[in-house]
Structure formats: structure tokens, C-alpha cells
């Protein structure tokens, strides 16, 4: 089995405070839990290349994509990261199917996702006529298509109804295992986090640390 991983050790600025975060993820799902505004999204943006961290290194599958000392900074589009944004960022002028197939027209995964995410009936609808939950599902679906090396999922299932949510969570677990994709999953829902992984992190005193699980 191929070993894939995401490694990073960064210092980044969140609301004028320096946040330290370092982590190594293999073929598994790691959750970051915590209230909004603590810097979870910033960490994802640093990895995706949308915002650059102040210092540090990031590598995917042992390829360095960012190193402030060696001045390495791979452009966003070459990092091959599947990113489901907290604010969806769907292409409002396209219909659902065009959004899903923007990166790749690969039919096999597409059909599976349409089925599991329950999108058959809205494939040709315009984005602006959709509900919040529908938009969330499309955004997550879009990030999975096109063989990304890693997945960054920023509260991808908030607003999705409970029944569908667990179908999709199972699918994600399966995906990370079978296709060996590291997944960084940000949420403020503890049930989701616990369901997905035993590795749950949180940001305390501007440091990303592993959460002690007290049940």
C-alpha cells in the first residue's frame, strides 16, 4: 500500500497573534475542533497556498510545497489539494454538474458522489436556487473529484441533515482508507469529530495541540 502523508510545521498570524501548528497525517482522518475564529481555517488556507504562513515548512507525500527558508512556494493550482471551503465558493453562474466536473470529468467517482451525496435531482439547477445543505454537499463533492493528494475539509457538513451526514461521513472514512488520502477535517461538532477519528486537535493558547478525550 502506498504511503501518502501531509506534514507541516508552521508559524502563522491569526488576529495579530502568532499561531504555531505542526502535524503529520498519514492515510487517516485528523480533526481540528474548536470555536470559530481560533485559526482553524487559516491553517487550511496555509496548506492550500491561499495565505502564506510566516515561517515553516509544508510537504505532501514528502514533496516540499512550502519552505520559507529555501523560498519554495508551489502555486495553489499545482498543489493538487481537494479543498471544501467553509463558505462553499461555488461557481454561481454554472449549474451543479458543471461545478462538480470543473476539475475532472472522470465519470466513475462522479456517479458515486452524485448517488451518495443525493444530488441526482438537482444536477441541472442553478446554484443560487439551492438550499444551504445542498450547497455544502456540492462543495464537498467538488473537492473530492479529480484525484486530490490530500483533502482539506472546512466544516463540510454543517447544515446537512443528520441521516445524510452519516452516509457521507462513512464514505469519507472509506475514501481515506481505500484511496489512502490524508484528510484534515475541521469542525465545531464534537459528534462528527469523534465519529471520524481518534486524533482530534484543538487550538489552545495559539498552539495546535492534541485534545485530551474525557468521556
Amino acid at each position: 500500500m502506498i504511503k501518502s502523508n501531509l506534514k507541516f510545521k508552521i508559524e502563522t498570524e491569526v488576529d495579530k497573534l502568532i499561531l504555531n501548528a505542526s502535524l503529520e497525517i498519514n492515510n487517516e482522518i485528523v480533526c481540528i475542533f474548536g470555536p470559530s475564529g481560533s485559526g482553524k481555517t487559516t491553517i487550511l488556507n496555509n496548506i492550500a497556498g491561499i495565505i502564506n504562513p510566516k515561517k515553516g515548512k509544508i510537504s505532501i507525500n514528502n514533496n516540499c510545497i512550502f519552505d520559507h527558508q529555501k523560498k519554495i512556494n508551489t502555486p495553489i493550482r499545482q498543489r493538487n489539494i481537494g479543498y471544501a471551503f467553509q463558505d462553499e465558493r461555488l461557481f454561481s453562474h454554472m449549474n451543479v454538474i458543471k461545478n462538480l466536473t470543473f476539475k475532472s470529468k472522470d465519470q466513475i467517482l462522479l456517479k458515486k458522489i452524485i448517488n451518495i451525496f443525493n444530488l441526482e435531482n438537482i444536477l441541472y439547477r442553478k446554484i443560487k436556487n439551492l438550499s444551504g445543505g445542498e450547497k455544502k454537499r456540492i462543495s464537498l463533492g467538488r473537492s473530492l473529484i479529480g484525484n486530490p493528494s490530500i483533502l482539506l475539509l472546512d466544516e463540510p457538513l454543517s447544515g446537512v441533515d443528520e441521516e445524510r451526514k452519516f452516509i457521507i461521513l462513512n464514505f469519507l472514512k472509506n475514501l481515506s482508507l481505500k484511496k489512502s488520502i490524508p484528510i484534515l477535517y475541521v469542525t465545531h461538532n464534537m459528534n462528527e469529530a469523534k465519529y471520524l477519528s481518534e486524533k482530534i486537535f484543538e487550538i489552545k493558547n495559539s498552539i495546535l495541540i492534541k485534545r485530551k478525550i474525557i468521556d
Binding site: 502555486p75 498543489r79 463558505d87
Partner: peptide, 12 residues
């Protein structure tokens, strides 16, 4: 931000 989303999907 929409442009960033397209970039993350590999668009030139």
C-alpha cells in the same frame, strides 16, 4: 475567493 476556489481545482 471564487478565483481561489478555481485555482484549488487546478485551473490556470
Amino acid at each position: 475567493k471564487i478565483d481561489d476556489a478555481a485555482r484549488s481545482l487546478g485551473a490556470s
